[in-house]
């Protein structure tokens, strides 16, 4: 009875990118004190094309962004194993294994839409993922905090190699942090026009999807960046990616965030940049 089903294990990456010796992977202590930059907030929007209330989450993200321009980074995540994210057509399937793993890591939710504000379990909450009516409040609380780390993110096309880019992440710590710090890098795409169920129950065939997670350059729970980084610690890492033919390069954003991993996933800082 106990062994009637074979279990589905966690995500293990059996196809890691072959290490490119030309990619930068370095760390050092800065000669001058690192000055903390304003904290940005990652809004992880767990959503699905058959979820009638999910367009409200997209509107909420737009509302928060208009109040705090350039201080939030949105990521719309479609998951496997959730009927509300089941695609209406195979060519508009936004589900990813990485997104499913993030959803599992953050503890799932009873329904959609739900979201993580900096992937943090906020005081008075029992779960990391919360309803959209709390997103603005928790975003405001996160924005008044000081981040211990600055992120500088850049993307550069590799000449002579079609659809190939080098993503560089520079992490600079203005304060020491105890424990392991992890780095996650995502590619999100906006502007795809396809089906979406609306709050009215109708299906909109021309719904414009935004910030949809397409791929991760790191493990879904992050790559280990540094153990207990001290003040003025600088880490520079480069990743190489070949973008799928199905994605529009000029509609893709690169998102990088530094966070805890394991029992907690609190995001210390997040940054985004256009791929192209």
């Amino acid at each position: 009875m106990w062994m009637s089903c074979s279990e589905i294990g966690p995500y293990i990456n059996f196809k890691p990118d072959i290490a490119d010796t030309n990619l930068v992977d370095t760390s050092y202590i800065a000669s001058q004190d690192v000055i903390a930059l304003p904290k940005k907030v990652l809004i992880s929007d767990f959503t699905g094309v058959r979820c009638p209330n999910c367009p409200k989450a997209s509107l909420k993200i737009h509302e928060i962004d208009s109040i705090y321009p350039n201080r939030t980074v949105a990521l719309a995540i479609h998951m496997f194993d959730n009927p509300l994210a089941m695609p209406y057509s195979t060519d508009a399937d936004y589900r990813t294994t990485a997104g499913t793993q993030i959803y599992n890591n953050l503890g799932k939710s009873l329904g959609l839409p739900s979201g993580g504000i900096n992937q943090k379990k906020h005081p008075s909450e029992t779960n990391i993922l919360v309803n959209i009516d709390k997103w603005l409040t928790y975003t405001q609380l996160e924005l008044i905090e000081t981040s211990p780390v600055n992120i500088t993110l850049s993307s550069k096309a590799v000449s002579g190699q079609n659809k190939t880019y080098i993503i560089q992440v520079k992490a600079e710590y203005s304060k020491s942090v105890s424990g392991a710090n992890y780095l996650s890098i995502c590619l999100s795409e906006s502007g795809m026009v396809s089906f979406q169920k609306l709050p009215t129950g109708e299906i909109d065939s021309f719904y414009k999807h935004k910030h949809v997670l397409r791929s991760m350059l790191t493990n879904p729970a992050g790559d280990l960046l540094f153990n207990s980084p001290e003040k003025n610690r600088v880490i520079i890492k480069e990743y190489k990616i070949v973008v799928s033919d199905k994605w529009k390069e000029d509609k893709i954003e690169v998102i990088a965030y530094i966070h805890k991993s394991g029992l907690e996933f609190d995001v210390f800082q997040v940054e985004k940049t256009a791929l192209k």
Partner: peptide, 11 residues
Amino acid sequence: NTMTMIANEIN
């Protein structure tokens, strides 16, 4: 949560 930590290490 524990499995995530195990998977992180294995990765």
